[in-house]
């Protein structure tokens, strides 16, 4: 019988092919870490891992889109620091203008965050436009914007971190909860839900996949491919802006070097989650799992008492293992 878009009974290998190597690998590693240190699966630690995952997950969901349309976005790390400095500078500037009326700090927080996120969005649109219209390699374009954005960040901050922000910023966006749920996690859930709908329920996701798989097929199907390539980079930068603002709220000050290691981890998370370098593949649940996997790895190894260099080596090996396995399993038979 023909199936109606559902998984029917398949061999174990076929099943593995469907879900990828990540879920079984996760199960193995969770068991391993928990044997090493039973604290690993305590409620507190699990919540901690999820909270730490938030920023990386939002970033990786964005990074997934340039990967799906067959490109790269290397500027998102720089955008985190950029969003951090822009948002806090605007907030602080505003604080000076108002002589402490009651609502002012809240308004300033909103303005600061909006300014940072919109500026990031603008940079993403520039990335996308140059890539789509001038056919410059995404690698070059986003490296270039990375250095430009880094320079702007430095000039705006004058080389110092930004302190003295409204209390509400950290208290609400950084450490606040609604109904017991940390606000950053709620952001992540909201964004994940939105992105899932975009990718799986709307036509936009289909277009992203199709363009990445074969841009000529997209053109032949009457799709304005350039528009969607720009959209992919715009969303990527937009989410980097949000992630940057949330991370800034968490640390409580505008920091010039925030998020530097996150860019490579975001790409790793997306690729681990099934996004193909070269385009055409990638999905939200996979990317979330990928982000969780990377955070969990470092948490588990922390609990084991491994240093960050040993961790880096282990993560690197696992990345190669996971991607190589997927590549092998996905080969046409």
């Amino acid at each position: 019988m023909m199936d109606r878009g559902r998984i029917t009974t398949r061999s174990p290998l076929e099943l593995l092919r469907r879900v990828g190597i990540l879920p079984p690998l996760l199960i193995v590693l969770i068991t391993f870490f928990n044997i090493q240190n039973p604290i690993f699966l305590s409620t507190l630690n699990v919540l901690n891992v999820i909270r730490q995952t938030t920023y990386l997950a939002i970033l990786a969901m964005g990074e997934m889109l340039p990967l799906i349309v067959g490109g790269f976005d290397l500027s998102i790390g720089a955008l985190i620091a950029f969003a951090s400095i822009i948002s806090t500078t605007v907030m602080k500037g505003g604080m000076g203008w108002y002589e402490a009326p009651v609502f002012a700090p809240t308004i300033m927080v909103v303005m600061g965050c909006s300014a940072a996120i919109l500026a990031s969005l603008g940079i993403g649109m520039i990335n996308g436009s140059v890539i789509a219209y001038f056919k410059v390699s995404p690698f070059i374009v986003t490296i270039a914007t990375m250095t430009i954005v880094g320079g702007i960040t430095f000039i705006v901050s004058r080389g110092t971190n930004v302190f003295g922000l409204p209390d509400a910023f950290h208290e609400v966006l950084g450490a606040g909860t609604i109904g017991g749920f940390p606000i950053p996690i709620l952001f992540m859930i909201g964004i994940a839900a939105g992105m899932y709908v975009l990718m799986n329920r709307s036509y936009v996701g289909r277009y992203f996949w199709a363009i990445g798989a074969n841009v000529r097929a997209g053109t032949l199907s009457g799709i304005a491919t350039r528009k969607y390539i720009i959209l992919a980079y715009a969303i990527s930068a937009f989410l980097a802006g949000i992630s940057g603002v949330l991370l800034t709220a968490r640390v409580g000050s505008g920091e010039m070097t925030l998020g530097a290691p996150l860019m490579l981890r975001a790409i790793a998370a997306a690729v681990l989650g099934g996004a193909a370098v070269g385009g055409g593949r990638g999905n939200i649940p996979g990317v979330l799992l990928g982000a969780f996997f990377i955070t969990m790895m470092s948490n588990g190894m922390n609990l084991m008492g491994l240093g960050s260099f040993e961790q880096a080596i282990a993560v690197g090996f696992l990345l190669i293992l996971a991607v190589a396995t997927d590549q092998y399993l996905l080969r046409p038979r």
Binding site: R206, A210, A213, A217, L220, S221, G280
Partner: peptide, 17 residues
């Protein structure tokens, strides 16, 4: 090959346009 997205499925390829 010009018209097809090889790593996507029959359904998506059919309904794309």
């Amino acid at each position: 090959l010009e018209g097809l997205a090889l790593c996507r499925d029959i359904k998506e390829n059919q309904s794309l346009p």
